[in-house]
Structures are given as C-alpha cells and as structure tokens.
Write a protein that binds this DNA or RNA. Sequence first.
DNA 1: CTGAAAGCGCTTACAG
DNA 2: CTGAAAGCGCTTACAG
Lengths: 374, 374
Amino acid sequence: MTTSTQSGSGRGQRVTIADIARRAGVTPAAVSLAVNGRPGVSEATRERIMAIAAELRWEPSPAARALAGAPVLTVGMVLARPAEVLGTESFFGAFVAGLQEVLSRRDYSLQMKIVETTDDEIDTFRRWFAQRRVDGVVVVDLRQDDARIPALEDLGLPALVVGGPGHHGSLPSVYVDDAHATRLLVDHLAELGHRRLARVAGNGDFLHILLRDRAFTERCAELGIDAITQDAGFGTRGAEIATAELMARREAPTAIVFDSDEMTLAGAQVLEEAGSRIPEDVAVASYEDSALTRTHRPPITAIGRSAIEYGRVAATHLLEVIEASRSRYGSSSAPLQESRAIEPVLVVRASTRPGGAEPAPAAHGPSGTGLPSS
Amino acid sequence: MTTSTQSGSGRGQRVTIADIARRAGVTPAAVSLAVNGRPGVSEATRERIMAIAAELRWEPSPAARALAGAPVLTVGMVLARPAEVLGTESFFGAFVAGLQEVLSRRDYSLQMKIVETTDDEIDTFRRWFAQRRVDGVVVVDLRQDDARIPALEDLGLPALVVGGPGHHGSLPSVYVDDAHATRLLVDHLAELGHRRLARVAGNGDFLHILLRDRAFTERCAELGIDAITQDAGFGTRGAEIATAELMARREAPTAIVFDSDEMTLAGAQVLEEAGSRIPEDVAVASYEDSALTRTHRPPITAIGRSAIEYGRVAATHLLEVIEASRSRYGSSSAPLQESRAIEPVLVVRASTRPGGAEPAPAAHGPSGTGLPSS
DNA sequence: CTGAAAGCGCTTACAG
DNA sequence: CTGAAAGCGCTTACAG
C-alpha cells in the first residue's frame, strides 16, 4: 500500500501541487513558492506544505516547470566526431565522467549528441536553444577561428568552451595550459641531458595542438636545443610513420614527445621493433596520461592532465555561467566570461628515466589516478 | 535578418503552432496533426502547413509536448559505481558511445546519473518515472537476484536489462553469451595443448562473472583438463595477487584467462617480473578487448565483445520496448520481453600463439575495432 | 476531414 | 504575507 498504490500504473493519478494546496488549505501558487524556497510564504506554512508534499510523495513535473519558464536542468554537449572516440580516446570517457559527477550532484543531466560536421553541431545548438532543451552547453575540440564561437555568441545560449587560451571569443572557457605543459616536458628532458628533441604532433586542426607546436619550438630555442616537429595527423598510423621517419634521420632525436597516449604506444612499438631501447636509446613521453601509459612497459612519463578533473571543473564553471545568465535578467551585471586555466603536472616514469623504477608503488594511489603524489 | 532576428535573444518571440495555424488559416489542432504525421488533415493542407512551419523555423517545444502526454524522447541510465569507471573501464566509454549513436539518430537523448548504492538507483528510477523524465531505462551491471528487477517490474517503466541470460525477470534483455565466450577461450587453449588452465575471476557480485565461473569449470571438465578459478575481486591489485598465487602453486597453470583487460595487463606484468615469458611459459587471454589488450606486447588474445556494438544493440532494443509499451495501451498485445544474445568472437593474438605474429597488419582495420576480420 | 475546447502541472506577475 | 488568474505550447478527445 505504501509504494505500489502510489507509484503504480500512472493512470493519471499524479500528485500535483493542486493536491498539496487543497490539503494545506492554500493556493497552488503558495505551494510553488514554498517548494521552490522563494519568499512569499511564512516559515510555518512552508513547513506544513513541505511535510504534505513529502507525505504525498510529490515529484515536480520537469515538463510543466520548463513550460512555465523555469530552467530545464540539462546541459548539452555535442561531438562532431565518430562515436568511437568515446570508447577509444581515453580522454573523453574520463571527461564525461567528471562532468556527470558534478552535474548529477546538482540534479542536472547531460544531454549528448553525436553529429557529423561542425555545421550539424551549430544546427544542434540552434535547435536546442529554440526548443529550450538545455540551459547551456559545453563546447569541446576547440579549433582556431572556430565557427561555433560566433554562432554561440549570436545565440546567447550560455556556453562554456573547453580549450584555449584565446579563440573562444567572449565566451568563458576552461583549458589546460598547453604551453606550460610543453615547458614541463621540454625542461624535464633537457635536464636529463637531451639536446635533440622531437615532437610527434596530432591533428593540427585543434587549437591545443597548435599551442603545443609553438611552445615546443620556443622553449627548445630558449634552451638552445634542437627541436623537430613531425606532423602525424589523426590516429596511430600517422604516429608510426612519423616515428619511423624521425629515427631514419641522419641526426635522430634522443627523446620523443607524443601528443596522445595512443600515439605514444604506437610510436613505442616502432622503436622497439627497430631495436631502440626506451629510455636508454630514446626517451619517450606523452601529453596524455591514461591506463595505456601507466601500464606500458616501461611506464610512460606523461602530463597528468587528469581528464576527470577537467570534466569536473568544466561542469562547475558552466553551472556558474548558467546561474549568472539567469540573474542577469534582473541586475544587468556583465556576463561571466572568465577563463580558467588548469595547471598541468608532469608524472615522471621510467620511459624517460634510465634505470628508474616507479616512484613508490603506493598501492595504486597516485599512479592509478594519473595525479602526482605531491 | 535571416537567422539573427529569428533566433535572437528569445524574448518571448517563440514561434508556436498558433502562429503557423494563423498563417495557414487552420486551427492549432490541425497543425499538431500535420506536423506529427497523424491522420486528420488532407495531404494538401499538411504540405502547406509543413512549408509554413519550415519557413517560420518552428521548433516543437519538448516541454509542452511532454506536459501534454507525448513521449519525452529520453532514455535513462544510472551507474551505481564511482564516476571513474567511465574513464577507467574501457567497456563503459564504448558502450555509451554505441548507445548514443543510435539514440542520437532517432532524436532520443541519454540521461545519465551516477549514484552511490543500488537503493539510490532504484530511487532514481522511481523519481524519473514519477517526473516523466524518461521514456525508458537501460539497466547495467546485472547481479544475481538483483533488487532492481522487481522494482522496475513493479513500476512499469519500460526497461532493458544488459546482462543475462536469466535473472532479468520478465524484463527484456540483451547479453553477451558468456558461456559461449568461455567455451571459445577454453577450447582455443585446449587445442594449443594446454592441460592446466586458470581463470582469474573478477567481482563475483556480477552475474556475468558467475556465468563464466560455471562455464569454465564445466567446459574444462568436459575436455578432461584441470581448471583452477582464482578470485581476484575488484581492480587490478587483486589480479596481481591472484596471478602470483597461481604461479606459486606446485602445479602452476600453463595458461591464464583474466576477466577484464585491466586485470590481464596487471597479471601479465606480474608474470613478466617473475621471469615467465608470454606465451612460451604461460599463455594469457582476456574476456575483454580494448586498446590495452591490442597494444600490449605481446598483443593479448581476447573476446572481442565490441562494447560499442553492445551499446548499439541495447539502444535499438530499448527503443523497440518503448515503442511497444506505447502501442500496448491501444491493442493489448503482450509486453515485449524477448532476450537477445550477442555472439562473442575470439580474437587470437600472440599472447596465446607461440611464435605467432599479428594475423596481417591490415592497416589497423580489424585489430583497430576489436572485431575479427572474418 | 475540420473546429472549438479542455487540460497537462507548473510559475509569474498582479491585486488585495 | 496571501489569493485569484493568466499563460507557457502542445495534444487529445469530442463535436460538427
């Protein structure tokens, strides 16, 4: 009788604020104010109303709320990439996990859509906005002069850009400081005595790849060491070829940095098959940390960007942006458009440290999360 | 003027079916019928209405539709696990990608929530149902005598269970045939001449683990070879210990099968550090295929379950279930409760094949997807 | 095949 | 601080 009758077959027996109002001897409007914690009802009646709502197991109707103009408690994200990347690129799974974690806690849900092109993506934003399907969106895979930025600025849909700095227009963003990450890697290798570094670069369409390109060249120049950037484009095949080409040079590099964990492993295999030992003959490092880099033998030195933390920060920031855009209707404060940087950390492992074992096998703590132990 | 005025600041300028009706000289009800492809309007007026809707860039309001009783075009999934699994367990990322792929195409969205306990999960289902937030749910991580099954049967919320066979009550399910997968692995190793097999088993709370336990013992008995099952519980630490214990036996196994890709790598490291060569001294295989197993040296023989395909099938089936539950109100046909099995395939790699190289490095085609080339 | 009406459950001004 | 009303945008019977 307790639950089964109540939540049974849903034959129109829905409990509404009208039911609560009747029982409490007030109007539905008063119930609305009470359950939303808004001023307009006395503390005593609010408590009475809340008690009745709980007793009746009332659940608000998101549809009715949305129709009446309240937030829909949903944020959107669209991926203009093959669905496979979610499973293949370790970054995305973890990033989504981080997003979900903070969104779920705040009763928001994440709406995802996979499309073919950037135009489709912009179109999706337009439709989501027109339908009031989402309160805001997170934009990933930022490119240089990204068409999505002006489109979103135009729409006025609250948005958070993942990537930067720069190229996110007037929209707020969070980004990992790729220039800093690059310096961490280059400095580490330089300290070990390397004087000829190579970088196997991913798809140059993405902004963060370009930022790495620039920082890599600059930092090496500052330190007076040779820098070779080898473009590998998408995927692991390109990384294999790029690595082979690097090693075929008259003056082969003594250390190679790869733009992703998948590329690193592909490159490492090429090195091993060619008889080069890691790290004795060639040191290897990755811009992306994951289970792949951690479990490889030898374990790979990597930038522990902690994609899950990245997701958490992005969600938190987006929620603030949404909040701000709501209150902006009242007070005319400036839109929230701050940029937030996430500090990268370097996780040193055996792939760059001759004869070095894992730091301290602290029962999978730090090395399991990709975060440094400090 | 084309888009910016139209989709501008959303100051109540929303285009509604009333606008279309006015322009077309019909009632809003007629517009509703027309845009939903329902009978009740002539083909001529339907076309006229559609043209006006397109011209006005009308977008339906999901909130209004939902409030009026139409489907909300959303399916839910809740994870009673730490958020990390999405990034850590390769299965989940790929599974979600598969779900998204078919849902997006059908204009459905996926609502995910991460909770602490199974009770929270059931509670979430109740609330989603009460709020009409989802049209149906997908249930993952099936256990023996799973409390979610009776709860969902009770609710009457369309649901699809991922896992089985059995233990999914009257609910429809899709599952990978773990008994079959087990036979593929055991038979493969037996053919190679192994006569003492071990299985390092994952968390026995999950049904598929129990099904593997049983099938492993049975198949080995049928073939007259020794079977050792070593429980490792959650995570990689357990797998390391289990592997070490197996190798310390007086009669150590000559082949070990692990329940996940992560466990396999952990076990493989223990073997290597102990000086056992793979596959010469010990053959190794995994129930789970992923980038980890493919890129490991030597590459690991695995069940290519293709988590992404699993996700696609699950989404497709759930959509059918939802469809059926809707039409059931009219005709009283039996609820759709069919179980669908996905055939596992064995991907043989060097970890079980002495001296064997990768089949044919066909430019990352088959080995890149985890599907066999046949 | 079409028109006029009620209703879905809530929120938000607007009077008292 | 409270009450009565209008409205959000659609769908669904129910008459013509």
